[in-house]
Amino acid sequence: MDALTLLTQRHSSPRLTEPGPDASQLDTILAAAVKAPDHAALTPWQFVIAQGEGLLKLGEIFYRAAQAKGESGEALARARLLPTRAPMVITVIAKVQAHPKVPAIEQHLSAGCAAMAMQMAAQALGLGGIWRTGSYAFDPVVRQALGVEGEDQIVGFLYLGTPLSKAPNKKSPDPADYVCYL
Results as ranks from 00 to 15, higher is better:
Gln144Cys: 09
Val141Lys: 06
Ile130Trp: 01
Leu58Ala: 03
Val179His: 09
Gln107Phe: 04
Thr8Gln: 13
Tyr63Ile: 07
Leu146Ser: 02
Tyr159Thr: 08
Gly52Leu: 07
Gly128Val: 05
Asp27Phe: 12
Cys180Ser: 15
Asp139Ile: 05
Arg78Cys: 02
Leu109Arg: 06
His108Gly: 04
Ala121Thr: 04
Tyr181Leu: 15
Lys171Phe: 03
Pro163Met: 05
Arg15Gly: 08
Glu106Gln: 06
Gly126Tyr: 13
Gly59Met: 04
Gly147Ala: 01
Pro14Cys: 03
Leu16Ala: 02
Asp139Asn: 08
Ser12Trp: 12
Lys171Ile: 07
Gln51Pro: 01
Ala94Pro: 09
Ala145His: 06
Pro163Ala: 00
Pro83Thr: 01
Leu42Arg: 14
Ala41Phe: 13
Val92Ala: 11
Lys101Pro: 00
Ala68Gly: 10
Ala176Val: 12
Val155Ala: 09
Pro100His: 11
Ala31Ser: 05
Leu42Ser: 13
Met1Gln: 13
Thr5Gly: 13
Gly70Glu: 13
Thr91Gln: 06
Ile29Gly: 00
Leu55Thr: 01
Trp45Phe: 08
Lys171Ala: 12
Pro173Leu: 11
Tyr63Glu: 14
Ala176Thr: 12
Glu151Tyr: 09
Pro44Val: 10
Cys180Tyr: 15
Gln119Lys: 12
Ala31Gln: 11
Gly147Lys: 01
Thr8Leu: 13
Thr43Asn: 14
Pro37Phe: 07
Pro37Asp: 05
Glu18Ser: 03
Pro103Tyr: 05
Ala117Lys: 04
Trp131Gly: 04
Gln107Pro: 02
Ile61Leu: 04
Leu182Val: 15
Gly59Pro: 06
Ile93Ser: 01
Met120Ser: 11
Val148Met: 00
Leu127His: 01
Asp177Met: 10
Gly147Pro: 04
Ala65His: 13
Gln107Glu: 01
Phe138Cys: 04
Ala98Gly: 05
Leu26Lys: 02
Arg132Phe: 00
Asp27Trp: 07
Arg15Asp: 14
Gln97Tyr: 04
Tyr181Val: 15
Arg132Met: 05
Leu55Lys: 02
Lys57Trp: 03
Val142Phe: 02
His11Thr: 08
Thr84Asn: 06
Leu76Gln: 13
Ala23Lys: 12
Ala121Trp: 08
Val34Lys: 15
Lys69His: 10
Thr162Glu: 10
Asp22Phe: 09
Asp152Ile: 06
Gly161Val: 11
Arg78Asp: 14
Leu158Asn: 11
Arg10Asp: 08
Ser12Cys: 10
Leu160His: 07
Arg10His: 14
Ala31Val: 03
Glu71Ser: 14
Ser135Tyr: 06
Ala117Val: 01
Gln46Lys: 12
Gly73Thr: 11
Arg80Gln: 14
Ala86Thr: 10
Glu74Lys: 09
Leu82Phe: 09
Tyr159Trp: 12
Leu42Phe: 12
Asp177Tyr: 04
Lys35Ala: 07
Ala77Val: 13
Cys180Asp: 13
Pro173Glu: 10
Ala111Val: 03
His11Ile: 11
Leu56Gln: 02
Ala137His: 10
Arg143Phe: 01
Glu53Lys: 12
Gly161Glu: 09
Leu30Pro: 02
Leu164Glu: 15
Ser110Asn: 06
Ser12Glu: 12
Val148Gly: 00
Lys69Gln: 15
Pro140Lys: 04
